[in-house]
């Protein structure tokens, strides 16, 4: 066997449920391919870790990425067994700001060109941006750049969640109904003309945005419950806002300007994008606190006074948001200050 040519496989990785499975598949694929044309097999696992100036705990994120890459490399070696396989790992794009699938494709293709890789394999759950589905367009971009693109298959266990996709029909109709209702509310009449134009507009909105605006499946009962609890939340929030304003008015108009501004950070005990958004906006609207930055559920909050910080850590708002989205049971999770104390107790 003359191993002169080397055809490598590029595998972008990030935390994902199907990553382990993808690694196995990528290793098999690389070994098969190497057998066919007599080249030596090599796999490059890359982790795009884009720049984010605001990120305070950058080293923490780098560490997390590196440990993921180490884990992936050891899995690959485990899967390869005795077979001859070169495994490389790399953190890429550490000094660029990536936002669109095109940006991601660019850095991947550039890496592939530099390392002489001609094939790429994607994890079916690869989603580094974490909000909108990125994979199909990313694959298309990379393919256009001349690489062979492959996607690891979904295993039986993950097929289950694929089935939830039939729920996307519900998503479609939810979006359609919401747009239609909104249109009719604005139109303010139920004439045939309004009904027809409304249906057309709602149809266009639903067709073009149903994959974008509703990323999780819609459970009608849960949504109704959430809305009901949200209606309870609004008066509470309004009351907090009113309080906030009198407090700010007092501070601003006080001759001595009694402020002690300070930036604090904490991890909120809410889990997906909508609750985090609600919490962040509510924090901004309530006494002396302003959300500056959010990374998943890590909030950076600027507070104007010491009492505002105490209120924030007492977690009343956070509890209320949890109540809205997850029900009464979830509201009883310890507040940020209690969580912090218990962490310090453990250490």
């Amino acid at each position: 066997m003359v191993a002169v040519t080397e055809s490598g496989l590029l595998v972008p990785v990030a935390e994902s449920a199907s990553l382990r499975n993808t690694v196995t598949y990528a290793v098999e694929h690389a070994l098969d391919h190497a057998d066919e044309d007599g080249s030596s097999a090599s796999i490059h696992f890359v982790y795009p870790l884009p720049e984010r100036v605001s990120y305070v705990d950058r080293s923490g994120r780098t560490d997390a990425a590196e440990s993921l890459l180490d884990r992936v490399a050891s899995w690959a070696e485990e899967d390869a067994g005795d077979a001859d396989l070169t495994v490389e790992t790399a953190l890429i794009a550490t000094h660029v700001y990536l936002s669109t699938p095109g940006d991601y494709a660019d850095v991947l293709v550039r890496y592939a060109e530099r390392e002489g890789l001609d094939r790429a394999m994607f994890d079916p759950r690869y989603d580094p941006i974490g909000s909108t589905p990125l994979l199909p367009s990313l694959e298309a971009e990379v393919r256009r750049a001349g690489l062979d693109v492959d996607e690891a298959p979904v295993s039986a266990e993950q097929q289950q969640s694929q089935l939830v996709r039939s729920g996307t029909l519900t998503q479609f109709f939810t979006l359609f109904a919401a747009s239609f209702l909104f249109y009719l509310v604005l139109a303010g009449s139920l004439k045939a003309f309004e009904l027809a134009t409304g249906a057309i507009s709602a149809g266009i909105v639903a067709v073009s945005l149903w994959r974008v605006s509703l990323t999780s499946s819609v459970d009608p009962l849960r949504t109704v419950k959430r809305l009901a609890r949200f209606v309870l939340y609004v008066p509470f929030l309004l009351w907090e806002i009113a309080k906030a304003n009198f407090q700010i008015a007092y501070i601003v108009l006080h001759p001595a300007l009694p402020i002690q501004p300070k930036t604090v950070e904490f991890d909120a005990a809410v889990w997906s994008s909508l609750p985090v958004t609600t919490l962040a906006n509510s924090i901004t609207l309530t006494p002396g606190t302003l959300t500056v930055d959010v990374e998943r559920s890590h909030l950076v909050v600027h507070s104007l006074t010491a009492s505002a910080r105490e209120d924030l850590f007492a977690g009343t708002l956070e509890r209320a948001v949890r109540f809205v989205f997850y029900g009464r049971a979830a509201a009883r999770i310890p507040s940020p200050i209690e969580r912090r104390e218990s962490e310090e107790g453990e250490e």
Binding site: V252, L257, I259, P261, L285, G288
Partner: peptide, 22 residues
């Protein structure tokens, strides 16, 4: 109050409090 706050408060973050809430 928002306008006064915008003038009196020391930096961009504190001023944003005034503009966002009031």
């Amino acid at each position: 109050v928002a306008a006064v706050g915008l003038l009196r408060l020391p930096d961009i973050y504190a001023r944003a409090h005034s503009t966002s809430k009031s």
